[in-house]
Amino acid sequence: MRAAVIASHVLAVLVLPILVLGLMNRTRALWTGRRGPPLLQPYFELARLVRKQSVYSVATTAVFRVGPLVVLATALVGGLLTPLFGVATFRFPYDFVVVAYLWGLGRALLMLSALDTASSFEGMGASREATYAALAEPVLFLTLGTLAMATGQTSFAGLLHVAVQTPGDVVVRAMSVAALLVILQVEAARSPVDDPATHLELTMIHEVMILDHSGPELAALHYGSAIKLTSCAALIATLLNPLAPSDGALRYAGANLVLVAVVAVLVGSIESLVARLRLKAVPQLILVAMGAALVSLLAGTWTGGAPG
């Protein structure tokens, strides 16, 4: 049984990101009145990149070659620790701290490999990424810390299951969802923070950092970013899940998967309907998320922390 759960989780970490990305692209296509590419299109693109040769600039060093692999590795391990099906396959106290710092490791290597190319555009992207990541980090910890406080749990497995009993719990849940949504947009570089489909280097954040990567390295970066996106979406989905694991594991996991898809459609719709923010306005968006997290914290403190 345990082996089957682990196998399905590993499989989900590997496959789900491609479907989530495909679903998002399909959503955007539908909003613009096109039929859109097939759901598996991201897979075909990754497969094409993997078969290609990499081209390295003369300015680069080993950091440029190792960076993408670290990004993918940390994203994979982070995916293993997040509750994709709502229940955590691997859990230990304070695993959320580890996941956040693993993402941090991947991000640091990504920024370093961008600086390694000696390109001013890539330096610009790294600078923006570093700034927004530093601002988003406290929001993530405030949200997860509040949830840990409200549920009396210390790992992803438990802290996302906020029992809704008092109005305070509703506020905690709603505000945490809002904050995590902004975190997703920042961490996974989606609009309105960043536009993955833009064509002008001057306005990019994530895409501009990987301008010089090619072949398998580029595939690793795209794949890693998709896994991070899916992990974030799974956090939101678990938080929204109305069922409890006691309602039957399969039903619960199914509901969670459906909610991941809903989050993907939601993020895709936001991307289609909302214009990209000016770079100066991104910190304000993060500030709004910080406000939401603070409200959630106050509500959690007000209710006095539930059991435990």
């Binding site: 941090g104 406290p138 910890f141 406080m149 403190t301």
Partner: peptide, 23 residues
């Protein structure tokens, strides 16, 4: 407990900015 969570968030901010500086 709420205050300690806030301190935790500030520590996370310190980590993020430290990563920026060292990168």
């Amino acid at each position: 407990r709420g205050l300690l969570v806030v301190v935790g968030a500030l520590l996370a901010f310190v980590g993020g900015v430290s990563a920026l500086s060292m990168v």
